[in-house]
Design a protein around this nucleic acid. Structure first.
Lengths: 363, 363
DNA sequence: AGCCCGGGCTTGAACGATAAAATCGATCCG
DNA sequence: CGGATCGATTTTATCGTTCAAGCCCGGGCT
């Protein structure tokens, strides 16, 4: 039964063309094309005959030819980031999957590329677009001072971004997660659980996304009348586990240590959990920790975390791109249509690391 | 400075064609083509002039046109799997990144698609290939009884696989990781650390990859003269954390509990760590645990794990695909060239969860 | 009858690139 | 000096598809 093949023999590629189908159905190329692209222009009987031929021959329209004629590759470019060993995990796989799935529904596909930095990314995006390899590109993880949106706008490359820059926010389409709301909801949750001294582990000021997460924490603390103590509970460092551990240890050694912390990422949060354990305390029971991103690691270690609706972001971005390139096709139609500016609310996922305090905190 | 734009205005796409360059350089299209594809056929002076025009106009050859003429899309398809919440993490992102990077070096790109099951995946692969959207496809995570290689061979779609089936192994190109060697090295490591009662947490027999990992453990136990006890230390369940916890608890409740376990995945391994802690024991000091895959979570929780050289796999597979489609181009040249069959050795990464025992184990 | 209309289909052209063949000019040799 | 040779460049044809225009024919209107 198993064909005893010596080395793989490649079928030379069937290559059924539209003309083959036309001949088989006894009509012209264009009629076949019409059956596929504008069925209402063809008599039902003919349509039937053509469809049968399409099926019998296993015809699939050639994408290159179609792209060439339509000057629309039905492709969307997206950089894939390298996996960083220092960091707990990425959620880019969730994003890419959502993007690919949403595109597929409209016969669009995702083209991956890699780049070592933002400039190279912009360059590749531009090159891909000018080569007609993609109709548009996606920017992942745009930060407030990100150079990429500006560069792509300048180059005229259609794109949509996950994340947004501080300025020029109207100039392009984006969907983003409300980081501020995220950390704020973490604070609310911790307050409800009985905590008052709630610290923040972030990365250095000026590093953009971190700032909004810090701001959410600070604003919520203020709202609960806890602003006074907050400056003593705010520490910053790199986005690594060891940094999270160090920062948390630092906080716990202070005269009035926090009973809970909000970390700007799961990476820092996991680091913080280590510090808690190392101090002989139990996460969730003695000290609560909440992370950010809801990476698989958070699930694994029972770290409460703020989950970004990144699948929704992926879908929104793909839909926006389809709109953009579609609009570009029938130009002038509703030229003034707004671009997408969408802020999504993340959701807190409560796990063991932030169970309610059993007794009122020590103070 | 910030252009006060109302809604994004799309540049209509520059669309510099080869004719534009030809005109600018005062030569014919074909000469420009030659400068780019066969520079030695063109006089140095002319080449210079053309290159300048290419640069000045920012010309990028249109991929669709090139694909159409060459009937080679310079694309490779790969399914992206959904992220499973139950599972600790995937290493597919590392794979895709390596694949994209390797392809990029030869002007090939990765096209993503999604599918709900193996049959749909095969179907999509075939459709993409027949549509000329990809030159070849990649199969990720092929298991011993996987139907996909057979289906693709039957459909004539060129492909290379990460992982291999039990039978028909010669019929196609693959690179795989030696799972058996992986778990065996974990056992060797644990033996060296002073352990003797070493258990195994796997998923049910017949579930393919799990079998070879189980086999590596068993063979190594045998080699160390520990075969007799092994049947009492072998437990199986689903690949989820809760399952890992349950299985480990079960083992620890036995009369002669293991002092160490090898888990078939990090997911099971992390679950096992929970069980260890829940029993009031310290992972690494009282009971050692080794996982498999070296996911970011393993790093986060200090779980020793067996790291698959998946970047290397990605590179090998892309290289093989380039070879395959290249060979297909100049047919008959060395038709009998073997396909790729490469087994890579994974590497144990030692972390806190399997530090050497401080004292000799009791008995 | 003559005219227009329009549904249903076909033909011709074009998208942008490249392989293959043809052209041109210069050089070389007998 | 005629013919062969060779290198550099141009012309022609083609990849598979779709847009635009054209054709054919039956039916309704004047």
């Amino acid at each position: 039964m198993t064909a005893g093949s010596h080395g793989p023999r490649l079928t030379p590629r069937p290559s059924v063309t539209i003309s083959d189908v036309a001949e088989a159905a006894g009509v012209s190329r264009q009629t076949v094309s019409n059956v596929l692209n504008a069925p209402d222009r063809v008599r039902a009987e003919t349509r039937e005959r053509v469809n049968r031929a399409v099926f019998d021959l296993g015809y699939h329209p050639n994408r290159a030819a179609r792209s060439l004629r339509a000057s629309s590759p039905r492709m969307v470019g997206c950089r894939i980031l390298p996996v960083h060993a220092e960091t707990v995990a990425s959620i880019q796989d969730r994003f890419l999957h959502a993007l690919a799935e949403a595109g597929q529904a409209c016969d669009h596909h995702v083209l991956l590329f890699t780049a070592t930095d933002a400039d190279e990314e912009t360059e590749r995006c531009t090159a891909l677009w000018r080569a007609g390899a993609v109709s548009a590109v996606v920017l992942y993880d745009v930060t407030p001072h990100d150079p990429r949106p500006r560069q792509l706008v300048a180059a005229g490359v259609p794109f949509a971004a996950f994340g947004r820059t501080a300025t020029c926010v109207d100039g392009y389409s984006w969907a983003d997660v409300d980081n501020t709301a995220g950390t704020a909801s973490a604070v609310d949750h911790l307050i409800a659980a009985g905590h008052r001294r709630i610290g923040f582990l972030g990365w250095p000021e000026g590093s953009s996304v971190g700032d909004s997460r810090a701001h959410g924490w600070l604003a919520a603390m203020d709202r609960h009348g806890l602003l006074a103590q907050s400056h003593r509970l705010d520490v910053r460092g790199d986005d690594t586990m060891s940094s999270g551990t160090r920062l948390m240890a630092e906080l716990m050694d202070r005269p009035e240590p926090p009973t809970a912390v909000v970390a700007a990422t799961d990476t820092l949060g996991v680091g913080a959990l280590h510090a808690v354990r190392h101090h002989g305390l139990r996460p969730g029971e003695d000290v609560a920790v909440v992370g950010f991103d809801d990476t698989p690691t958070a699930t694994a270690v029972g770290l409460s975390s703020i989950r970004q609706p990144i699948e929704e972001v992926g879908r929104l971005i793909m839909a926006e791109l389809l709109r953009l390139v579609g609009r570009n096709a029938d130009r002038d139609v509703d030229e003034a249509a707004e671009s997408l500016h969408r802020l999504l609310v993340p959701e807190l996922v409560v796990r063991a690391s932030s169970a309610p305090l059993r007794s009122a905190p020590g103070d």
